[in-house]
Nucleic acid binder design. Structure first.
Lengths: 317, 317
DNA sequence: TTTGATTGTTTCGTTATAGGAAATAATTCA
DNA sequence: TGAATTATTTCCTATAACGAAACAATCAAA
């Protein structure tokens, strides 16, 4: 029989002073109780109870075990309770990664809302463009952009990232707003790409992908400094509208080529296929769904009206 | 699988960071380890390890369980160690009963020797003439006199209690030493018997029991005061030689009718038939055997030479 | 890139165990 | 003395444990 059940039965017998009463209380047969005690006694090689058919009392050795078993079972209950809470109530530490490009979207604010709602959840937010292995590094959730290939991951498609061309209003006035993506070739390009990768801008023309080969004026591995350059009127930048919302809203940057935004680039949330996810992750996923749903409605009604749900971080210097 | 084994395997995996290594260390198949962890995870509804085929690391929840499980397993080891010691090393409390009549024999001294040899054994010595139920009152060992009838008890025959008639030397000089038990009828009798029982003295004449009906000058439920009276020359007393050894040796009392001592009255040690006796009781039983064996040899060689192994208690006032 | 080695998981068949109903033994109460 | 209560034993069946081997996935070396 299970050791802990054994000890629990032992404790119950010691408290009640009766085998049959314990059997009734625990919902098992008297035979089981008798065999359980016998098993404990053979295991230790000691008699634990003085027994008559009418009275049951602890042996000297039984007294010793009784004291220990109480402490032990309390510890077990404590641990079980903690883990049950962890499984039930959202708490503990979540590890989330996102690429740099999403830092200035409303995603951090959404995570903030989440943390406000669940005060017992702590967050490890790892911002990196490196594609991390979720299992290897113990990452609970990864925000990714674009189609995701990994078969082992569960992927939720959250939001369409409508990429647009932006520049300072002064720049547009000086060089003219393009009417077609190919006209961007003649503009100063502020391009963003990962290390060693050639920057490419994707559009959609008449439902078909249109890819632009670039000779950028500036190429950076991080978008934030490019934004500063763009507001200075140094050129055209291509980025998700969502990542530039505060500058567009304030009028520092102005969109162009919005009808040619590619429709297949989305924000995804990826997590491991697991039999048992923590309550914290489960609840984060539902909040993500709600978040996506809210924007789906809003975007559906007024596509131009997206903005952060609360104050976003200031741009990097 | 057994809960404690489960937790132990979990701890081992957490320490080693490998399923196969723990399987090898614990001497089980890798399949068992895998299933054990899976079982724990379903039990708590939480994932405990991040696993790749190459690396295994603790989850947030796993870390929590790891801390608890260490404390828990240490507690289990502690309790098991204590009980094993109790089963192996003589320690703990022994409960022993003996009748009043044996208090002035060398039995207490023997118990003293036993306690000296085993310092970790404590003793509850219950002196009573009541026949106690060993199981009911948690008595480990009972010293009894005479044939024992209880079927549930294991009985060891220790020593023959050679009953003799004694009186003060002055008394014998005044009234003459008897040559046959029946002559005691004419003597002043100092008799000892339990409450409500008629006192009877048993002898053996030519191999046949000879019982003497008494009209005692003094009848008491306890032998000790009678000894005082006997030394004062008030009459004849009938008791085990062993219980009177110090007075006989000092010359305060003098034996008579020694050839008629009954041969079927022995000192017995009775204990419960138990599957698992404590080490303390086991070792006490072997010491009793050695004690009996030593006296068997000594009595066989020099029947008159019995005396306490060390200083006995003073007689009651 | 391919091959081979290592590791975690699953499947499957055998074996052992758990668990309870009923019979048994021992004791107490009316 | 008879009836009721209680611990233990026996017996049977459904369940679980266990390891071997097949499988899947990953890493290291050629």
């Amino acid at each position: 029989m299970d050791s802990l059940d054994l000890i629990q039965i032992f404790r119950e017998v010691a408290r009640r002073g009766s085998f049959s009463a314990t059997a009734a209380a625990q919902g098992v047969s008297p035979a089981s109780v008798s065999k359980a005690i016998a098993q404990l006694e053979t295991r230790f090689g000691l008699r634990l109870f003085h027994r008559t058919t009418r009275k049951v009392s602890l042996t000297d050795a039984g007294q010793l075990l009784f004291e220990r078993s109480s402490a032990l079972l309390e510890l077990v209950d404590l641990a079980q309770g903690e883990l049950h809470e962890r499984a039930t109530r959202p708490s503990g530490r979540l590890t989330v990664t996102m690429p740099y490009g999403l830092v200035h979207t409303d995603l951090p604010a959404m995570l903030g809302d989440f943390l406000l709602r669940y005060p017992e959840v702590d967050l490890d937010l790892s911002v990196t463009d490196r594609v991390v292995g979720l299992a290897e590094e113990g990452v609970d959730l990864a925000f990714r952009v674009g189609p995701i290939e990994d078969q082992n991951l569960i992927v939720r498609r959250l939001l369409p990232l409508d990429f647009v061309a932006v520049a300072a209003p002064a720049y547009w006035r000086a060089h003219g707003k393009p009417a077609h993506p190919r006209e961007l070739c003649t503009h100063a390009q502020l391009a963003w790409s990962l290390h060693g990768q050639a920057p490419r801008w994707h559009f959609e023309v008449a439902g078909k992908p249109f890819e632009l080969a670039l000779q950028p004026r500036v190429n950076a591995t991080l978008a934030a400094p490019l934004i500063t350059l763009a507001t200075q009127g140094l050129g055209v930048m291509w980025a998700p509208r969502r990542a530039l919302a505060q500058w567009i809203d304030s009028g520092a940057l102005e969109c162009a080529l919005e009808p040619f935004s590619p429709s297949n680039v989305w924000l995804y949330a990826a997590y491991m296929q697991r039999r048992h996810n923590s309550a914290a992750l489960r609840v984060l996923l539902t909040q993500l769904d709600a978040f996506a749903e809210a924007f789906k409605c809003r975007d559906g009604q007024r596509p131009q009206d997206t903005q952060p749900s609360s104050g976003a971080a200031a741009p990097q210097a």
